[in-house]
Design a protein around this nucleic acid. Structure first.
Lengths: 341, 341
DNA sequence: TATAGGGTTGTAACCGGTATCAATACTACA
DNA sequence: TGTAGTATTGATACCGGTTACAACCCTATA
């Protein structure tokens, strides 16, 4: 089942067989046909390793996401995979599990496997880790918030801070003042920005910030539940809660329901991401629509641009996609709020 | 950055360097240390392809699932990945997108890449496709329903038919008679079994089956919505709906709400899978608890058993995991049902 | 002192391909 | 007919490792 067998059976040299596969135009038509027939008959496919050894190319990209059970990341992954598949390229999906050591380990593996490029989604990695990748000649593209100190690496993101500002601003506009935030503990930088946006909206309105209204939690439904419960246990309970992800909102809303607190009548909610489930829960969740699939697509395209052009000055590019607030029932209505507060 | 450089710098032959990496016990301690120092200094890692060419082993398994946006499959994937990662093995996650051609294409890629084994989750592939894999000496394990005609391939599954029977039986027990089913169009075999379980429960009770109560739909929230709407538009509307997945239930419940039909007062629901979201929607969904993560773990362990032992008569094994009905609010209460019907 | 045997190392064949270069055959043209 | 030019093919070095085998050194024993 190797090239020698094919060559022997077709009565040619291995070079000719190799040529049929790589430069078919340079082989006489009848010889070519004979060889192709033998290839088909023997179901021969060139050895993956041998090819790699010569070409040093794998037609594989690495995709590292923080958590494969988080639909928001999976939608980004889907976008990346769609492009990658279309480019006849395989995707090695790695699950960082919100742990920097695991991310590092995966990156090492990806480098070892000589992937053609790497997409990092909301990565926890620090700049020297990432530089280490590019130093090996492997292109990298970031999707989601940057750690801030990483320069020269192309990135696709949304304006988290601005989006959060607008979300909280909306709560203020419809009458809320006691607004809390539940933000994920990872990725740190991204959530810091969301907190910044929240703070800015409050500050602008002269609302003094309460420290106990800032709740950090693991970015999961369970995390949201715990943080929601904590907020609910406060003496001075918030009337509205902004969460840095929809999952956190789901958990917090569940906590409210479990403790007999009505949403949105007693506590309003605004989430972040607009995952598919966000308009299926009760009440439908007002949330920041993050163009997840598109982020994946754009990020992957950018990566392939760099791979195909060997990266001629595409680096340093930053692509900012638009997000917008999707207003649903979970933050109540102006009229009703007027009645209640 | 190749083995020659290391050898030169350490003043030894390439063979000795290679030995340090593969059979360190056969190298004199001081030589070994000197070489290790050079390796560290030069940040040398053996070329992936060259190693593969010699060992014909990739430390990679392939994992093919029908849809990466379906949380039910992702939980299985997580289980597989957990084991694989623990085994120091990489996982190549492939998204079949519910299309047999895409599955075939991915399997070809996985074979070409000489993965050490393949896990197929609820695959659409036919027996000859799968035999083609094992013929190449690549172990395969199936998770989820079998197509029925595939023999000699180990499989981890639950009793879909029995679970569905019990689910519908529960609806009957609490007083429902007009029970519809919404089942996913893929994977065909799995859903056929669920329909069989549904039918059996009805037949046992002498309830005549209505053809219009059998609704097939793509296994997504959107599919559930459409099927739910269709059922709702019937002249003789069902009083209870069993769905072959939670996603379908979510969509159908959403359709009911949009059309002002109360759940569970006017239509009861029972889903299948028990994905994380199923007890967050309103009303909390009664559903068949499928041990997804465990299925992934068990399936992956089985695969590694076969890989490690070169498959000595482990084939033919079938592991049946237990599922149970998780009763929540979406199918109403006996008392209340008594009032309504 | 000669020799057997273990420990350590180097040489070179090999894994399965690709690509360079030279060799050959064939054509066209002077 | 001689020769240049082109099309086609084969022999072989090479990609970067692993490993069988041989060679060497050294020590222990007869």
């Amino acid at each position: 089942m190797n090239i020698k067998e094919v060559a022997k059976k077709a009565g040619v040299s291995v070079a000719t067989v190799s040529r049929v596969l790589n430069h078919p135009e340079s082989v006489a038509p009848d010889t070519k046909q004979r060889i192709l027939d033998v290839i088909q008959e023997l179901e021969y496919t060139p050895n993956w390793f041998a090819r790699g050894l010569n070409f040093n190319k794998t037609d594989t990209i690495g995709l590292l996401i923080p958590n494969i059970l988080n639909p928001s990341y999976m939608e980004i992954a889907k976008g990346v995979e769609d492009v990658s598949h279309q480019k006849n390229c395989n995707t090695l999906l790695c699950n960082g599990e919100n742990a920097i050591e695991k991310e590092r380990k995966y990156v090492d593996i990806l480098i070892k496997r000589r992937v053609d490029g790497i997409v990092l989604v909301s990565s926890l990695l620090e700049s020297d880790n990432i530089e280490n990748i590019t130093k090996q000649g492997i292109p990298v593209v970031l999707i989601g918030e940057n750690r801030g100190d990483i320069k020269g690496i192309p990135i696709v993101r949304i304006d988290c801070e601005g989006a959060s500002y607008k979300a909280v601003r909306h709560l203020i506009d419809i009458g809320y003042k006691d607004i809390a935030i539940i933000y994920g503990s990872t990725p740190e930088k991204e959530n810091k920005r969301k907190v910044d946006g929240y703070r800015q909206a409050l500050a602008e309105e002269g609302i003094t910030e309460r420290e106990e209204y800032l709740q950090e939690a693991p970015n999961t439904i369970e995390g949201g539940y715990i943080a929601g419960k904590r907020l609910n246990d406060l003496k001075h309970r918030p009337r509205a809660i902004f969460t840095s992800s929809d999952l956190l909102a789901f958990g917090a809303i569940d906590a409210m329901k479990d403790h007999g607190v009505k949403v949105p009548e007693e506590v309003a909610f605004v989430g972040f991401d607009n995952i598919r489930m966000s308009n299926l829960i009760e009440p439908k969740l007002t949330t920041v629509e993050k163009p997840m699939h598109k982020m994946g697509v754009v990020g992957a395209r950018l990566l392939f641009d760099i791979i195909d052009t060997k990266g001629e000055d595409i680096t340093n590019r930053e692509i900012l996609l638009q997000s917008k607030l999707k207003i649903r029932k979970s933050c109540g209505h102006k009229e009703r709020i007027g009645e209640i507060f």
